[in-house]
């Protein structure tokens, strides 16, 4: 589904990703963990198409296409979804308008008919119920005045409505209390299917108790320095990131 090879990306003059390789197949759940500043969020943003990062080298093949050449909206329409760490507030634009515009943009791309107001409302209300959002959130401005948990639920709602092939969750657990975390994780787990892949980016292993990954990768210094199964996350929880980072520099030294 997604194959990333030797990805280098920078912001301004500062290199952040320094040769990242990752391969994700349909149905898989990958977790990327790493210390602050390791490039986790940069990876998420580069994959979604954020233009202030510059891709210096490498490639990303997405469903047989060159992902890095696609405009942001084309990536979204072809089934790539990024749940934001800090969802943006759009005052004056109702959540209902925004969600409907998004759903119909994706449907048009897939050659499906657009949902009319009635069908859309029916659909969105059932999804809202599933993520535990009250109906009033449809008529409020996008994310404006939402609590941290409400914003994250709104991200999961968008994900459910857009039915992506690959969903990237960027620190979706940050700032959530345990109840909100469970609700968000339940929402995400409902979407797990053999056709859909998840890339869960997190600093803490806590979220992975609820969204259990098939693979765990450790990102440090802009590269994946270790990959393993779920047990790797538990090991990180116990030992911290220090041993990985020192291992990374040892490996780099050996390679040089």
């Amino acid at each position: 589904m997604l194959t990333i090879k030797n990805l280098h990306a920078s912001i301004g003059e500062k290199p952040i990703l320094k040769g990242l390789d990752l391969s994700i197949k349909a149905g898989e759940v990958h977790a990327i963990m790493g210390p602050n500043g390791s490039g986790k969020s940069t990876l998420a943003q580069v994959l979604a198409g954020r233009e202030n990062f510059h891709v210096d080298q490498g490639e990303a093949s997405w469903l047989g296409q060159d992902l890095l050449a696609m405009p942001i909206e084309e990536r979204a329409r072809s089934g790539l979804f990024l749940a934001f760490q800090y969802p943006i507030e759009i005052p004056g634009v109702s959540n209902a308008y925004f969600l409907k515009a998004a759903v119909n943009a994706v449907r048009r791309h897939q050659g499906l008919s657009e949902l009319d107001a009635m069908d859309f409302i029916k659909r969105v209300k059932s999804e809202m119920k599933a993520v535990g959002m009250r109906e009033e959130f449809l008529y409020r401005s996008v994310n404006e005045g939402f609590s941290g948990g409400e914003k994250k639920r709104n991200e999961v709602l968008q994900m459910a409505l857009l039915e992506p092939k690959l969903a990237i969750l960027d620190e979706t657990d940050s700032g959530l209390d345990i109840d909100a975390l469970k609700a968000v994780a339940d929402g995400v787990n409902r979407l797990r299917s053999p056709e859909r892949a998840l890339l869960v980016i997190t600093h803490y292993q806590r979220l992975l108790d609820y969204i259990v990954p098939d693979f765990v990768h450790v990102l440090a210094g802009g590269r994946i320095v270790r990959s393993g199964g779920r047990e790797l996350a538990l090991e990180l929880e116990e030992r911290g990131y220090g041993w990985i980072e020192s291992g990374d520099s040892a490996q780099a030294g050996a390679a040089a």
Binding site: G49, P71, E73, F81, I90, A101, A105, L162
Partner: peptide, 10 residues
């Protein structure tokens, strides 16, 4: 970026 990442054109 947020709006475009949901499929809305620029």
């Amino acid at each position: 970026f947020y709006l475009r990442s949901r499929g809305l054109d620029e």
